[in-house]
Design a binder for these strands. Structure first.
Lengths: 160, 160
DNA sequence: CAGTATCCCTGCCGATACTG
DNA sequence: CAGTATCGGCAGGGATACTG
């Protein structure tokens, strides 16, 4: 299974660019990525949704109960918070502890696995934050060019 | 602006867990994250979509032209490939070079910024791949528990 | 070849109401 | 408090047809 592991996520380090000429393109790995066969896709799907990263981040500072999370995020609907928590629990990233009191109390906490992802996400966040100016500048430049090319087509509306 | 930077992505390293007790919960940072004010959300949105990571990965091995990418991914629609490439270009992650030949030829290539993200994504991919078994096991366990609890409700259908 | 334009459908997600 | 159930909007993304 060490043929076309997506992003060379396998055994060797590939932090920099092309260390291998790439045979023909890892078509197998790509197919796997789309089938849901690829473990990378799983994580991508999880962090791609609107709330998971937020929850993982909040739980990075220790366990919280349902309403604590709800109030902390505040813009999330009850439905989505529940779904998000269930998905994270299913993937073994958080634990769900029910205290059979009345009213009920449920604590959510990162597992060891969850803390690992939390750390990796922090890496990504750090990169994003460090390069926020570059991205913003790139967008400004791009949008300015767009506006210019539009300006050469639209002026007729002023001559009407 | 060093109050509640999301995921502590600011100036200090936080690779491991909670190094600060967290005052009250960084409500401001969370609001910013949802407003689109947060640079982390930008990256999350980008890598959260279906094709961006794939494209960045493929371009990690050098420039490619439109049809090369299309054929490499093969399941992507023309429409979505174009949109993905435009978004990446706008964010300054790739460059688009048009050769005014006939038929036209367009090359896409990672920028310096893009190569940085490529490296960070490789980190994430490596983590995902390294822990794929844990996630799979967690899911199996979870799903088995689910099936069990269902089994105590459903049997009536067998007694009908 | 490298796109743009149009149609359409699925599923994500929010709002609301109800329950143990 | 901590959920589940149901309805509905709308954006992401695919299929197809057309263009420079």
């Amino acid at each position: 299974m060490q043929d076309g592991t997506f992003l060379s996520a396998g055994d060797t380090a590939v932090t920099d660019r092309g260390d291998a000429p790439v045979p023909g393109t890892p078509a197998g790995a790509i197919a796997a990525l789309l089938d849901g066969t690829c473990p990378v896709r799983d994580v991508l799907d999880r962090i791609g949704d609107k709330w998971s990263v937020l929850v993982i981040t909040l739980l990075g500072d220790g366990p919280m109960r349902f309403m604590e999370l709800k109030r902390a995020i505040e813009l999330v609907s009850q439905r989505m918070l529940t779904r998000t928590l269930r998905a994270l629990e299913r993937d073994g990233l958080i634990t769900r502890t029910v205290f059979p009191t009345v009213p009920p109390r449920v604590d959510y906490e990162l597992t060891e696995l969850g803390r690992g992802l939390h750390a990796t996400l922090a890496e990504l966040a750090r990169w994003s934050y460090a390069h926020r100016a570059d991205v913003e500048a790139a967008r400004a430049t791009y949008d300015a060019r767009e506006a210019d090319s539009q300006a050469q087509v639209e002026p007729e509306s002023l001559r009407a």
